[in-house]
């Protein structure tokens, strides 16, 4: 019933207005303002203010009926117009407040959701990190074990080699020196039968360290020409290399080079010194590298 009150009142006064001759500008403005307010948000959001506006308009209409020309009728109509505008503004304020409250609630809700998601992400990241750390630890442990195993193999190899030939360490790695007279006949590059036995034993040790690169160097004494010594030393180094490759050592990890008489380890004036200079050195390098002949 209440919702129909405003339009009925408005219609009533409109009829009254129709009967009158000249309606003051203030009153027609008040009627229009009230019509606007009562058909807008104010009816729903600010009914109390709209009611006040309705009463103010009724008062103005009565004053107008009493004396259409009176200043009082005009002033009351002016006030009624302001009251109607006030009702509209009150509705606008209420809607703005609601909008603000809704936005703040949405902000809180969104922020809460984001915090929750961030916590979830953080938790997942922590789990991933922990898993990664565990994996890293396992890898480190495995590498450490492999390192230990390699060191042990190196030690075993060095010990075994020491029993077969002269072994020494320098910056290049482990150097196994085999006497030339044990491996080859004089001025020949064909391996002697005994040499094969000795090289079999050396190869067995080398195969334990097959991931290392090997350099085989042939050396001669100073007798003969430089050229012939160089050729001979190269042929002998090649012979040893070929034999080790036959024994399953990776070919691309073995280099052979003849150095002739250029790197003596003893004087060439005595027979003993020359015998020491005639030699083949097998160098097991420290660093692994990809190599070919």
């Amino acid at each position: 019933m209440k919702r129909y009150l405003a339009p009925i009142t408005f219609a009533f006064f409109a009829i009254l207005a129709g009967c009158s001759s000249t309606v003051p500008r203030e009153l027609s403005s008040a009627r229009e303002a009230y019509r606007r307010a009562s058909t807008g948000h104010a009816a729903r959001v600010a009914p109390a203010k709209l009611h006040v506006a309705n009463q103010a308009l009724a008062k103005a209409e009565v004053a107008y009926q009493d004396d259409p020309e009176s200043y009082r009728a005009r002033d009351l109509a002016y006030v009624a117009e302001r009251k109607a505008e006030l009702a509209e503004v009150a509705a606008s304020i209420a809607l703005a407040k609601k909008s603000k409250v809704d936005a703040n609630n949405e902000y809180q809700s969104t922020q809460g959701k984001l915090v929750s998601e961030t916590k979830q992400d953080l938790s997942e990241t922590r789990n991933e990190l922990a898993a990664s750390e565990r994996s890293g630890q396992r890898t480190a442990e495995r590498l450490s074990e492999e390192q230990k195993a390699r060191s042990a193999a190196d030690e075993r190899a060095a010990s075994a080699l020491a029993k077969l030939a002269a072994v020494k360490e320098d910056s290049r790695g482990t150097i196994i020196t085999l006497s030339g007279s044990v491996l080859f006949a004089s001025n020949r590059s064909t391996l002697l039968p005994d040499a094969r036995t000795r090289l079999d034993q050396v190869a067995a040790v080398l195969l334990d360290t097959r991931e290392r690169n090997i350099v085989i160097e042939g050396h001669t004494d100073s007798r003969g020409s430089d050229r012939s010594n160089l050729e001979l030393s190269q042929q002998r180094a090649d012979a040893v290399r070929n034999y080790l490759v036959q024994r399953d050592y990776q070919a691309d990890r073995i280099q052979a080079r003849g150095l002739g008489e250029t790197q003596p380890v003893a004087g060439n004036t005595s027979a003993e010194g020359r015998a020491n200079n005639r030699r083949v050195e097998i160098i097991i390098e420290r660093e692994s590298r990809t190599s070919s002949r």
């Binding site: 002033d75 009351l76 002016y78 302001r82 505008e85 503004v89 703005a96 407040k97 909008s99």
Partner: peptide, 28 residues
């Protein structure tokens, strides 16, 4: 005086409306 009071009252309401709407826009 009734006119004066009605206008002043409306001025107050319009100022509040402006503030509320600005705050609403800022929240959004």
């Amino acid at each position: 005086l009734m006119r004066s009071e009605a206008d002043a009252e409306l001025a107050v309401a319009l100022s509040r409306d402006e503030r509320e709407r600005a705050e609403g826009r800022a929240a959004v």
